[in-house]
Design a protein around this nucleic acid. Structure first.
Lengths: 331, 331
DNA sequence: ATGAAAGCGCTAACAA
DNA sequence: TTGTTAGCGCTTTCAT
């Protein structure tokens, strides 16, 4: 397994150029000599050295994937989507966690350049001007995934979070709920939760409903539990729209602890449709984001860029979907 | 960002060898000239091309990670552990999903060779002779992670699943449970669940308890739910040890549906300590596997191998821990 | 249809 | 302390 292309050439009685040709199918080679080469390759169990290839061709067939944290809820599904499509197109992925830190994100783009990746799929909680500068300097094909570029300079794949949140509010309002609270971190607009807040506000306002924000510092179970409990003591909403599944479960538990019934007293809608929503009792209505597709589509998009295939748009919007379960069921 | 080492050398008025020296700190360079080089690097925003480096040095500073499926429960945590430690030692990871398929696993090891990775961390449901052959042929430093080599030919990091299961049975028996069932797939010994079954059987037998196996074809929620429901109609155990958290939740739900109370009527112990066990109600007692540590320790181990540091053992056994929650609490 | 030869950008002897 | 010079294993003109 450590023969070189030169060994193969000698074994087959041809030049290394010819071996390269049959390897890459980059020119016509006579059937007969091709066979000799193929046999030699098998005999020596030759495998081309991808590093040498990368240096000579300036294509490494690897792409960089920069995510805040693979181990975060369902992020791995997205990565799986990337990897599956990457494999279909003969790419491999270098996976890096940035913790959503600007400095690390910037460093990583540089590192990706060093590694000579053919392209990058980038995820971040919030895109900043520095990101754009870095992208430009690196001169790498980059796709944003589940990350919004408000100015649409970088190609991206996303869902319409504003619309999704509006639909959730509409669903709840349609079931007669008139005091719908939004549970999530108080963040800027150009972020996931930010857009969801925005949609919530739009739809509630349009329907003449008052808005109630249950703001949290972090978006996890424990923080949400405390926040919801506090809210229930002040003013009890009859529906809660949570920024993610974990927080929704916290809301559900907080209600139960306060002697409130879900969905009868308080309906709950979550975001993300992770496994949690099915395993929880009552099961939670949630807005499904196509996590796997996020990755798959982003990677497919990137392959198009890499092959100079025409792309119809630089802003791919994936469909979302409300999955209705017990937590919004009227009896 | 696309200057070469040669450009830097010219800019600094030195030879490329000197630039290489300050880059790699591989020999003493006079303070003065070093400064000129550093300045030139900054001026040209030079970044070394890792591919060229890899070809010349035969070290790519990247390691291959082969897992069945990143998106499987908590597998991403393990990968995170790997990546964090890899970063500390200046490595990057190429992540590949094998779906636990022998053919793909073998192919991937070959691909890793092509990519010239410095080492591989390998995970598989069950190690087979073909794996060993492939590893030998590839001549790559390989660490098994959460994967057992019964003949201990390949270095590995694991927990003692037999012991863990025994402790779980002991816990339940200590609380007076005398009909403890094991819920899991009926698989061979040299696998995770296989070892857990083994430990269950050992401890139960030693204590003179009868064994009840609730066998399933797959190890997921839906399959487990059906299996447990069926079992409850035949013969009701007063405790269930589940092969993983998801199945344990199924057991919990099946009990609830049958009008049985957890833990009063049926105690439940799970394996893995994923988030599910905390978010479920009742919360589940579970055996914590140090998922992050699995990856972190495996990667650390690998760095030792790569640096020819002495390793005291080729079989690293990580500590496990029973996390007791409501599902085994006696009131 | 095939071969010769020049790089790709770097590391690592070997000299000086 | 620094420079010169081979490679590393391939791809890719340019000839033939």
């Amino acid at each position: 397994m450590s023969a070189t292309i030169y060994d193969v050439a000698r074994e087959a009685g041809v030049s290394m150029a010819t071996v390269s040709r049959v390897l890459n199918d980059t020119a016509v080679v006579k059937e007969d000599t091709k066979k000799r080469v193929v046999d030699a390759i098998a005999k020596l169990s030759y495998r081309p050295n991808a590093v040498a290839r990368g240096l000579a061709s300036k294509k490494t067939k690897t792409i960089g994937v920069i995510v805040p944290d693979v181990s975060a809820a369902f992020m791995a599904e997205l990565v799986r989507g990337i990897e599956d499509v990457a494999r279909m197109y003969n790419y491999h992925i270098i996976l890096c966690n940035s913790d959503g830190t600007l400095q690390r994100e910037i460093d990583l783009v540089g590192t990706m350049w060093e590694k000579q990746v053919d392209g990058v799929i980038f995820m971040s909680p919030k895109l900043q001007p520095e990101h754009i500068d870095t992208f430009e300097e690196a001169q790498l094909p980059i796709i944003l995934c589940r990350t919004e570029d408000p100015e649409r300079r970088i190609p991206s794949v996303n869902i319409n979070n504003v619309q999704a949140a509006r639909e959730a509010v509409a669903l709840l309002a349609g079931k007669g709920r008139d005091r719908i609270a939004f549970l999530g971190a108080a963040v800027e607009e150009a972020t996931l939760t930010g857009r969801r807040r925005e949609g919530y506000a739009q739809e509630a306002t349009q329907r003449g409903l008052s808005t109630v924000y249950i703001d949290t510092s972090k978006e996890d179970y424990a923080t949400a539990l405390v926040a919801v409990r506090a809210q229930l003591n002040i003013d009890r909403p009859n529906a809660i729209l949570a920024a993610n599944d974990e927080m929704a479960i916290a809301a559900s538990h907080a209600c139960a602890d306060a002697g409130l019934r879900v969905p009868d007293d308080v309906m709950i809608v979550a975001f993300d449709n992770t496994k949690l929503t099915e395993l929880a009792r009552p099961q939670l209505t949630t807005i499904a984001q196509p996590m796997y597709d996020y990755g798959a589509v982003a990677m497919r998009f990137l392959t198009k860029l890499l092959r100079d295939e025409p792309v119809s748009t630089y802003l791919v919007v994936l469909p979302h979907q409300i999955v209705e379960r017990t937590s919004t069921l009227t009896r």
